[in-house]
């Protein structure tokens, strides 16, 4: 399992990608580790565009056949866009978690908020520590 260097990671297994240097806009999804731990994902619930999220707040739900898992906002900000393909094809999260199965685009309240997240090396070590 490898975690791309251009993403930042949370302990709740979300990833965030800045959309261009100096941008306040990030793309958010869940990691390969998260999808693997969940198993076959069969349902996703995402927030409406325009919703304002606080860091750590639940923004949605993913469900595998067996379990329900909350999704947590990696930073505070406003939801600009959701990936409308996911509700009809939640299995995409299993197939392409770090790219095609992005979930939200968020305009961050604080442009520096991503600096608090883990980089790929730190997240890799974190995931290893969980086993």
């Amino acid at each position: 399992m490898s975690f791309p260097n251009n993403l930042k990671y949370t302990k709740d297994h979300e990833w965030a990608r800045i959309e261009g240097a100096g941008s306040k806009i990030i793309t958010v999804g869940v990691t390969d580790h998260a999808q693997s731990a969940l198993g076959d994902i069969v349902f996703i619930e995402l927030p409406a565009a325009g919703r304002v999220l606080k860091k750590g707040e639940t923004f949605g739900v993913v469900e595998s056949i067996k379990a329900v898992s909350d999704l947590y906002a990696p930073v505070s900000g406003k939801v600009l866009e959701i990936n409308t393909a996911l509700p009809n094809d939640p299995a995409l999260i299993n197939k392409d978690p770090h790219a095609g199965a992005w979930m939200l685009k968020i305009e961050m309240t604080d442009a520096n908020a991503l600096s608090e997240l883990m980089d790929a090396d730190a997240y890799t070590k974190y995931v290893e520590s969980l086993h």
Binding site: D40, S64, I65, K66
Partner: peptide, 11 residues
């Protein structure tokens, strides 16, 4: 084991 290849596939 809760699963091997995945619940969907096994089912």
């Amino acid at each position: 084991p809760v699963q091997y290849t995945g619940v969907m596939d096994e089912h």
